[in-house]
Design a protein around this nucleic acid. Structure first.
Length: 423
RNA sequence: GGUGAGGUGCCUGAGAGGCCGAAAGGAACAGUUUGCUAAACUGUCGUACGGGUAACUGUACCGCGGGUUCGAAUCCCGCCCUCACCGCCA
């Protein structure tokens, strides 16, 4: 959520920035500011009224103490009107606050000045490309065929147990999952991220804090009987650990990582993009989260991006890094890098990580602040990224590393899988 | 699921209608002292939203929402949450 104070100060600039996300915010912002001035006026009136009541209440108390019943009662009578009036104002103020908030949460985050203009994924800017795109041998097949050929993932069984998008990993497929998770977590720990194992169900306040609620509740699985949501990403519980917290400036950067299953309803998606492991309702992911000083968050974003790149490099996967254009960015992000690996059998790039700086967009909702050197509390910046999401990594690994003899495990993973080939 | 206790600031914890935005201690921060560490002493030490160039100032907030009252952290009602014990259980 954008800060109202910032909107007041930089209205034109914000409208201009939102346009980069192809969001026309002029009408909403005008309305917000109109409500805002009404709100402030109302609060002023109300405060003055309440002040008067407080003064009278004090006087009444003193008069009673002095035994001056008559004068006291006279004053008491005065408060009746005040009370009626202030009650009315209070209701008005509450309405105005609600209206303002309703509009405020509709505004996406302003993209950073570094964000390229554009409408579709085609307008994303490739900022880095690395690794050799191998030609596969004759007879190479996509991963959804490899998985049944080697009996490592059973999609049918998942359908039987739950439904489409809930695969069952088996044999070396299950071990590969476990190996990747451990490998990712070890890498993150080595890079200074504190490992956490958070709950995978969260309450409403947490969903609100990171921005899934109130708008995107359709994306999450909801356990109505207990009013809890299954997390779509570990970002939700991990970032919410810092909800309503004032951290110490000296603690920056705060770095956490965590593995969790992730659950996404993905309502409305279909077709070949969702085939096999390309899009699932349940998948595994290691997430990295940082909380950083506003002056350093972009430096941190680059670090995180490079950290993810280093993993892809070690896995010997060809990858590219895209700086997302305004039109392809998520609602809350100020700058996002997508990391994609090239899947040789599908002959396309698959998104395996997304690293974003949210600036104060999340922390404003979370009330995640720090006390600066000047003694003032201000909002911290939050960043997160996948490091990494498993399914598409698995898909790419299987496809790119297939040989007539079997699927070769990258060297760096062998200590984790304890086997070198899936055959 | 049953029963009981309780939610107060960064933490512990007092406060039981007005003198309470809230004692005391601890933590933290700044300073003095100090060869270093420690200790001691002094000071600072809630948040949000307003008004003001500023010093400063108004209001609200003691889990949440309502009520009683001139006046509520304190009394009443509803809700939420936490803890303990019992039952069930990985």
């Amino acid at each position: 959520m954008l800060q109202i104070s910032k909107i007041r100060e930089n209205k034109e600039f914000i409208i201009e920035r939102l346009a980069v996300k192809n969001f026309d915010g002029k009408k909403t912002i005008d309305e917000i500011l109109e409500i805002d001035s009404k709100r402030r006026k109302t609060q002023n009136e109300l405060d003055a009224l309440l002040n008067e009541s407080n003064v009278i209440a004090k006087q009444v108390g003193e008069l009673f103490k002095a035994g001056k019943q008559f004068e006291a009662n006279e004053l008491k009578a005065k408060t009746v009107l005040l009370k009626e009036h202030s009650k009315k104002l209070e209701e008005e103020l509450c309405l105005l606050e609600n209206d303002q908030h309703t509009l405020l949460v509709q505004l996406p985050n302003t993209p950073s000045v570094l964000v390229p203009k554009g409408k579709t994924p085609a307008d994303n800017e490739t900022v880095h490309e690395e690794g050799e795109i191998k030609k596969l041998y004759e007879g190479a097949i996509p991963h959804w065929e490899l998985t049944s050929k080697y009996d490592i993932i059973d999609f049918e069984m998942g359908v039987k147990l739950t439904g489409a998008g809930f695969p069952v990993y088996k044999n070396k497929g299950a071990k590969l999952q476990r190996a990747l998770i451990n490998y990712f977590l070890d890498k993150a720990s080595a890079a200074g991220y504190i490992e956490v194992q958070p709950p995978i169900l969260v309450n409403e306040a947490s969903g609100y804090g990171t921005g899934q609620l109130p708008d995107k509740e359709g994306q999450m699985y909801y356990v109505g009987i207990d009013n809890l949501y299954l997390i779509p990403t570990a970002e939700v519980p991990i970032t919410n650990m810092y909800r309503d917290v004032i951290v110490k400036e000296a603690d920056f950067p705060i770095k956490n990582c965590g593995y969790t299953p992730c659950f996404r309803r993905e309502a409305g998606s279909y077709g070949k993009d969702v085939r096999g492991l390309n899009r699932l309702h349940q998948f595994d992911k290691v997430e990295i989260v940082q909380i950083q000083h506003p002056d350093k968050s972009y430096e941190t974003l680059e670090n995180m991006r490079e950290f993810v790149a280093s993993i892809l490099r070690e896995l010997e996967l060809p990858f590219r890094i895209l700086k997302l254009c305004g039109g392809d960015m998520s609602f809350g992000s100020a700058l996002t890098y997508d990391m994609e690996t090239y899947s040789a059998a599908q002959e396309k790039w698959l998104e395996v990580s997304s690293v974003s700086n949210f600036e104060t967009f999340q922390s404003n909702r979370l009330k995640l602040r720090f006390k600066g050197k000047d003694g003032k509390t201000q909002l911290a910046h939050t960043l997160n990224g996948s490091a990494l999401a498993l399914p598409r990594i698995v898909a790419t690994l299987l496809e790119n590393n297939q040989t007539p003899e079997g699927i070769v495990i990258p060297k760096v993973l062998v200590p984790y899988t304890k086997f070198e080939i899936i055959n």
